[in-house]
Nucleic acid binder design. Structure first.
Lengths: 127, 127
DNA sequence: GCCTTACTACGAAACTTTTCGTAAATAAAT
DNA sequence: ATTTATTTACGAAAAGTTTCGTAGTAAGGC
């Protein structure tokens, strides 16, 4: 099994709709996309067909209207994209990326506590 | 002044060489790139010319061999790329990105301390 | 049954990014 | 001075991504 390719930006937008809403038709995906910006129906269809070829989505073709679903989870996908991004934009330094990401961001008490907990766990690992 | 466009992946690779080594010639940049993968000299030249047009780099054309330098700092560039990336890959949630990035990463004591300090500073802000 | 609508398949155009070949100019080497 | 090497400029091909038009086929409404 060859590993799945990273999705392109448009493909990612489609995957996000599938992750959020579960297995969906092209029409539903297209209508959801159109809440953001205008996209032709066949444009969405074509993209989803390409994604099926690449293995990024699976589709049930039992009925005439095909049902698409993601072939990979959102966290797995994010991991792949993040690894690439850390390499290209931060020369491999995840820490620098974290600092940059935290910098201007308004975080809630709970979020900060969660990160802190994670860091404290890692500090224990280090010993 | 229009804000500078985000660099593409290849452009980013060139910027990184300039950030790391200071003002450089096309030849130097090309040779550095070639340590990673084979790229033709005119390919690198063309990219750098395009970057100059876009305003991503500045060049000194006083002597025949032009000297290029970045027009924007690495952190500024990273910030722009990160904002876009958080939006597209993490649907705007910087916190999720941070958690993902910290997850598998081996961090040193000092790095963890630095992040922790930043978080504690933010916790104070919140109150 | 017939017409309208909805869906998939396919191909190609449009756009972006990357790659490189060729030509012209300048400098260096012999 | 002539040749050789180095550099920029330019244009266009190649590759990747996104967009959509057209055709064919199945389904639904009348």
């Amino acid at each position: 099994m060859k590993p799945l390719p990273r999705p392109t930006e448009s493909e990612l937008a489609i995957l996000q709709i599938l992750w959020e809403n579960g297995p969906s038709t092209v029409r539903f995906v297209n209508e959801t996309l159109n809440q953001e910006r205008e996209v032709g129906y066949t444009t969405t269809l074509k993209l989803m067909q390409i994604m099926a070829e690449k293995g990024l989505v699976l589709r049930n073709t039992a009925s005439r209207t095909h049902i698409y679903r993601p072939a990979i989870s959102e966290p797995e996908t994010q991991r792949g994209l993040l690894d690439k991004f850390v390499d290209t934009a931060f020369r491999g330094s995840a820490i620098k990326l974290v600092m940059q990401a935290l910098g201007p961001h308004k975080a809630s008490k709970e979020e900060l506590a969660a990160i802190k907990a994670m860091i404290e766990a890692k500090e224990k690992d280090n010993q």
